[in-house]
């Protein structure tokens, strides 16, 4: 564990809690892509199957369970409890365009051709692109509430910090994981455009982020 890794985990947790609290307090999931949240729940489910096979640490187990629980709670709020506020008409990203290549790639490029390894690889590849329905929705409507942009900021920050963590681990432990690194870099690149808009628009005091 290093400071980048811990900060990355914390910002990931902060992002998820921001989103959950926003939906819970406003009793609305307007502007939130339910599809992205389902994909993230799928990411956690397929990656954390190792909860049943290996024990790493109490921290590791607790965080995995928390991420799983919070992601399912978010999906529940969007599709069940506050489904009347869900903007399904704007959440029109074709998820199969992500799932089919990701499934195919995880069968082709993995560390071992076993169900758990393929599912782990699938979760890494899927996480890299899971935010696309949300970014697509913002592009389509041309705006996002500031709290939604704070969520995206922390989610992007988490990924950027993980890259710093990998650089650190490479230098201190001579260890690196190519599948995780390539996917992590791809995922971070998706956020670059958003980061630019976040700093130039949201943090300059406007309530909403509007696209030009």
């Amino acid at each position: 564990m290093n400071v980048f890794r811990l900060a990355g985990d914390v910002s990931h947790l902060v992002a998820i809690i921001i989103l959950l609290l926003k939906i819970w307090r406003s009793k609305s999931c307007a502007g939130i892509s339910g599809k992205s949240q389902v994909l993230f729940a799928l990411v956690f489910t397929t990656r954390y199957l190792d909860l049943f096979t290996v024990f790493i640490s109490v921290y590791n187990t607790v965080m995995k369970v928390v991420f799983l629980a919070l992601s399912y709670a978010t999906v529940y709020l969007i599709y069940m409890r506050f489904r009347n506020s869900y903007n399904s008409e704007n959440d029109t990203f074709r998820v199969e365009f992500l799932l089919v290549p990701v499934i195919g790639l995880s069968f082709l490029e993995n560390y071992a051709f076993t169900p758990l390894e393929i599912l782990w690889t699938f979760s890494i590849f899927l996480e890299a692109v899971a935010i696309m329905p949300q970014l697509f929705m913002i592009t389509k409507t041309g705006e996002a509430e500031s709290i939604t942009t704070h969520y995206l900021f922390f989610l992007g920050l988490y990924r950027a910090l993980y890259i710093a963590n990998w650089v650190w681990r490479y230098h201190t432990e001579s260890f690196y994981d190519l599948i995780a690194i390539v996917s992590g870099v791809v995922q971070t690149i998706f956020f670059c455009d958003f980061f630019y808009l976040y700093f130039t628009r949201v943090l300059r005091g406007r309530g909403k982020m509007t696209l030009p």
Binding site: R5, I56, N60, M63, F67, W120, N165, A180
Partner: peptide
């Protein structure tokens, strides 16, 4: 070889 990295990171 067992890869603990992937199970350690979240």
């Amino acid at each position: 070889e067992y890869n603990v990295f992937k199970h350690d990171e979240l």
